[in-house]
Simulated scan of single mutants.
Amino acid sequence: MFDLVPFGRRREDAWGPLAKAFNDVFNDDFFTSMRPQMLSFKTDVRETDQAYLLEAELPGFRKEDIDIDYAAPYLTIRAVHQEDGSVEDNHQQLVHKERRYVEYVRRFYVQDIDEDSIRASLKDGLLKLEVPKRQSTKSKRIKIQD
């Protein structure tokens, strides 16, 4: 029958405090605190009586790289950037080639908006969205007749 003790646990038992110290130092992910910043983009969201106003920082992205989609009740902003740079010598031998693919996605829960009137603009790496709220119908009082 298989031993139910996890492998890492057995290693710690065999090496004692030395294994625990080693794991604490080398298994600690240095980039954990920076990961949310690397995988997302900063966005400010303000609300007025008429609309939601979003400002998203997307430096280096062109408007062709950004896709904005609304599927009730989620507004999704997706920014994709691809780079393929290469340098070749006279003999067509590859000297240096790099590829980079970056994709950022943010979803916002917004309901009761006028999806046909959403406006977007991109200038100097700042995406601005105006998401108008649906005009609420005024309530009507009804009196009981009988």
Rank of each mutant, 00 (worst) to 15 (best):
V110A: 01
D44P: 02
E103W: 04
Q135D: 10
A72S: 14
F41V: 05
M34L: 13
F26E: 05
L18C: 11
E98K: 13
S121N: 09
K138C: 12
A56P: 03
E83N: 14
L94A: 08
V45I: 14
G85I: 15
P132W: 01
D49P: 03
F26C: 02
D65H: 05
R35Y: 14
I118D: 01
T76F: 02
F26K: 03
T32A: 15
V95N: 10
F108W: 04
L129K: 00
E64R: 12
D65N: 12
L94R: 09
V131Q: 02
I118K: 00
L53Q: 06
Q92E: 14
D28R: 14
V102Y: 00
W15F: 15
E55Y: 09
L4F: 12
N23F: 07
G85F: 15
Y109E: 01
L39R: 10
V105N: 00
K123Y: 13
S121K: 09
A72P: 11
K140D: 11
E115I: 07
F41E: 00
E55K: 06
L53A: 07
P73W: 04
D49C: 05
I113N: 03
E115L: 06
N23R: 12
L18F: 15
Q93I: 15
D49E: 14
S33W: 13
T48A: 04
F26S: 06
R107W: 04
D28F: 15
K63I: 10
L126S: 06
A71L: 10
D24C: 11
D69Q: 15
K63V: 09
A120R: 07
R119A: 07
R62P: 01
L75E: 00
K143G: 08
R100G: 08
M38P: 05
